[in-house]
Amino acid sequence: MFQGKGALALAIGGALSLIAAGSVVADEPAKLVVNGEIEMVTETEAPAHLDAFDTIYSGWTFRTPETRMLQMDDFDNPAMVFVDQAAEAWDTVDGSEGKSCASCHGDVAEGMAGVRAVYPKWNEAAGKVRTLVQQVNDCRETRMGAEPWKYDGGKMVAMESLISVQSRGMPVNVAIDGPAQSTWEQGKDLYYTRFGQLELSCANCHENNYGTMIRADHLSQGQINGFPVYRLKNTKLNTAHARFKGCVRDTRAETFNPGSPEFVALELYVASRGNGLSVEAPSVRN
């Protein structure tokens, strides 16, 4: 059955790591270009509201060459498997109204272009700032008559990634003035508030100590332009809120929940610190 007349017939048992056997080059890629066409800004001037830095850096610049390479080709980026699954969900009718996402928004590439870059965003009807995830669930509940997805569940994070893909390469540009301003200020307060037994604020690590090591990991500026991210450590997509939760937990504090008003405010503030960086999601990190 396994006879082949060809050049090469292989039988491999045990765990495989063919990526390592492939053509991964150790040279450090200096610029992030995805699929040889989408040029990303991974380093730029800090937005005006941010006094702490002159230059803001994407988390991509803090990772090892191998991890950076994974993000440069959609075929190598493991997150794309989940994006494909979400693309099917986009066209799948769900709920009592007989609608799918595509029924209203059409083709995802057109309907969702640029959306990721401006979220979290003030929603006039709701009278508050909404994250992309909350907007998706609002669509599911009010327009589709479907059950909302879990805030940081697999289906939602895949859908968030699919929507983000349509904005890749566009600069993050969340609004922090007007009606969103009070939420933004709440997020800023949280960013500089020390939590937990270790009494650490976000700024203690990501502002005062970025570029240094925290145990075996390289501290980044904590930018979220690449979220949702595929993390090699847990081999799945991770939301910004799950990352916030992990960070607050690591200060040995009781954390806020994904989707809580506190984390929505924090997401808006942290996103605004990355205004000007490219939307990279879904990115690859360790």
């Binding site: 396994f2 082949g4 017939a9 292989l10 048992g13 765990a15 063919l18 990526i19 056997a21 498997v81």
Partner: peptide
């Protein structure tokens, strides 16, 4: 296979991880 000629033929076992990736 390329034009009917085998290029690679792999037997896979249970220890292989989810979403198997081959590059050759």
């Amino acid at each position: 296979a390329f034009n009917g000629e085998t290029v690679i033929d792999v037997a896979m076992e249970p220890a292989i991880s989810t979403n198997p990736y081959f590059q050759f």
